[in-house]
Nucleic acid binder design. Sequence first.
RNA 1: ACAACUUUU
Length: 286
Amino acid sequence: VVLYNTLIHGLSSCGRMVEAVAVFEDMQQNNGCSPSIATYGALIDGFSKSGDLRGATETWNKMMADEGCVDMVNVVVYTSMVDVLCRHWMFDEAYALIERMRRSSCHPNTVTFNTLIGGLAGSGRTERARTIFEEMGRYGCIPNVTTYNELLGGLLKSEGTKEGLEFFKEMDSNGIVKPDLVTYNSVLRSVSRSGMLVLVLQIFGKMVSSGIEPDNFTFNTVIDAYSRQRRVGFAIRIQDRLSCRGYWCPDIVAYNSLLWGICRWFGPEKAGSYLEKMMVNHGTNP
RNA sequence: ACAACUUUU
């Protein structure tokens, strides 16, 4: 069963739901295996990630009709259902489901709330996200760094860099959660998109001195932000310096951003010759 | 270490 679950999870998480369902059928019909709660969990999550509300709901119903699993239904599966609903912006339904969890003695946890808050914040509903954020404590759920990162991301995207930076300062000084790599990456994204180069460097410095190692997301984020503006030349210089010193090996995402920028600001001709150079110099597969 | 949450093209 574990083997089947692993297989289903693998297919589900790259969107191959038709095959995942085929394996699900096969395990029962040809090998007499009974799905476990993790089997249903993997399937529901797969449907959720591919935006298939019906598929997720049907799987949920199958699970509820499965003698061996009804009583095993747990917070993980509920959270996946909350996730599907959020992806369809059915936030009232998601909230109702959390209420139902509480009543059915399957208590929501921090991840459950994070799923809802992430959905709200990611769709511009920052006010509502904050309300839930304040409410989760009453359910005995303590916000963690992910919760804060979700709110921060929402603020940066829908309320603007300034609002977001204020939240970041609060987060940094109140000592409840410590800003992490994702926190800094989000902030750097907004700040470099606003073109505030000095601030980018300051924040980057703060990040490094807090002992956080920048990763590909960090560099790609900044490179992309500057490629979108007229600053592609600048983006290329950053890339060159970092890779010459061996700090970073640019990946395919970075090259995509640079190419987009060169194409947009200097025309396809230039982009073509850059593409050739990049293949020779770095052995990257476009 | 069989399933759920946040950052880049």
